[in-house]
């Protein structure tokens, strides 16, 4: 497979310069490196500029509702846990509308790779604030500046039980590509938050902003150290890139004896129905 093999004949409708192009590129490259055919895995997309990627990619895709990609992915994974499942979502999508699902998917440690386009705005609906927006951020829906403090998705992921928590930058495709590959190779719920400039509606968190405020984690960071990971993700001024936290814990699917050998979808049906009647006699 080469990158072009994953491309449909539709050219992306994103604004020129949008960070989504970088994420799109990193995703395709990561699959080439994994050696995945379009039928070897599935992607569930949320609704937003981010989710619109669904039309530009040749794979088994499921374009879901706004906020609901994760529960769709959990259901799919339970049905066929041998199929790698990736979720592509927006920050409004995943941390706002679907925030409850985000917390609970972390708890469950479902073996899914979640890739969130964190642009701190709602792109598709023309630039209102996302829950990731910095307090005071002015938008069409918050002309006086947003009152709420920002959600910290990485801290949330780490404390709620995600077992692979990383941050990438849409402006650094090779680095992001490697993070994605690492997330696929991790058994358990992986959260890859991607800092994604929205060139049209967010004039503050630009490529330049992220180049100035981010740094790459080096070998001095121990991803097994939860407290150190939390300290790093709580710093809004110096933003870490790389694998912040990693832990080995049984996945949800590994905890189900029913699917220890075969997936639900491949299992033969062999219930002894008459014996089920005994308790009703």
């Amino acid at each position: 497979m080469i990158v072009a093999d994953y491309q449909t004949n539709r050219f992306p409708t994103w604004c020129p310069g949008c960070g989504d192009f970088g994420i799109w590129g990193a995703l395709k490259t990561s699959w080439v490196k994994m050696g995945w055919n379009p039928w070897d895995f599935a992607i569930v997309f949320g609704i937003g500029c981010s989710g619109n990627m669904a039309d530009f990619i040749k794979v088994y895709g499921f374009h879901s509702l706004h906020g609901r990609a994760l529960p769709n992915a959990v259901g799919l994974k339970i049905a066929n846990h041998k199929l790698p499942v990736v979720v592509v979502a927006g920050d409004g999508d995943c941390y706002g509308e679907g925030g409850n699902h985000f917390i609970h998917t972390c708890r469950g440690n479902h073996d899914i790779s979640l890739v969130v386009h964190d642009n701190r705005v709602y792109g598709l609906t023309t630039g209102q604030v996302a829950p990731t927006a910095t307090q005071g951020f002015k938008s069409k829906s918050t002309p006086d500046g947003i009152i709420e403090v920002r959600i910290n998705p990485l801290a949330l992921a780490i404390t709620q039980g995600a077992t692979f928590v990383a941050q990438g930058f849409a402006g650094d495709i090779p680095h992001l590509t490697q993070l994605l590959i690492d997330s696929y190779n991790h058994r358990g719920f992986s959260v890859v938050n991607v800092l994604q400039p929205c060139v049209t509606f967010n004039k503050i968190n630009t490529y330049m902003y992220y180049r100035e405020h981010t740094y790459k984690l080096d070998s001095s960071h121990n991803p097994q150290d939860k407290i150190s990971a939390l300290t790093k993700v709580m710093d809004d001024e110096r933003i870490p890139l790389g694998i912040l936290y990693k832990e080995e814990r049984k996945t949800y699917e590994q905890s189900l004896n029913q699917i220890a050998t075969n997936t639900l979808v491949e299992k033969p049906y062999n219930l002894n129905l008459n014996s089920l009647l005994n308790e009703f006699k």
């Binding site: 609901r68 529960p71 959990v74 799919l76 066929n80 609970h104 029913q258």
Partner: peptide
């Protein structure tokens, strides 16, 4: 356990129906 099926008490009913849809999409 006995019947080899999976039963999930999900976080809310929105998740419930969407997990059901995901599982059905998965072929079961």
């Amino acid at each position: 356990d006995e019947c080899g099926i999976v039963v999930k008490h999900a976080e809310d009913e929105i998740a419930v129906i969407n997990m059901g849809i995901g599982a059905s999409y998965g072929g079961i």
